[in-house]
């Protein structure tokens, strides 16, 4: 996988734009940090989590990842903080907190 880019590089100018802003190598949205305007952040309590995967299923952005130990964790590189995972969780294992809080 290519390197994840946080912003457009300085040396990418208007001259580098493809005709009609077409993206000739599609699927590169995964390289962009699309979660940087989040105001609320999901926090997982592993004590309550039963690894059911409902958060993973409900996340509209595919921003919940399955860890090796079977737990599901929000990927904050993409997560927009919509809170759907917290609502979907039957065990109350996900809490939404303000960004900036510990």
């Amino acid at each position: 996988m290519a390197e994840k880019k946080l912003k457009v590089p300085e040396d990418f100018t208007w001259r580098n734009m493809e005709v009609g802003n077409i993206i000739t190598e599609p699927g590169n949205a995964s390289l962009r940090k699309t979660g940087d305007w989040r105001s609320m952040r999901p926090v997982l309590d592993k004590e309550k989590c039963i690894k059911c995967g409902l958060c993973w299923l409900y996340c509209p952005d595919g921003a919940v990842k399955l860890l090796d130990d079977g737990y599901y964790e929000p990927d904050l590189f993409y997560c927009k903080g919509c809170g759907i995972c917290a609502r979907a969780c039957k065990k109350g294992a996900i809490t939404m907190i303000e960004e900036g809080e510990k």
Partner: peptide, 9 residues
């Protein structure tokens, strides 16, 4: 980050 460049092009 890209809209202005798109418009100039």
């Amino acid at each position: 980050d890209i809209y202005s460049e798109a418009k100039k092009a």
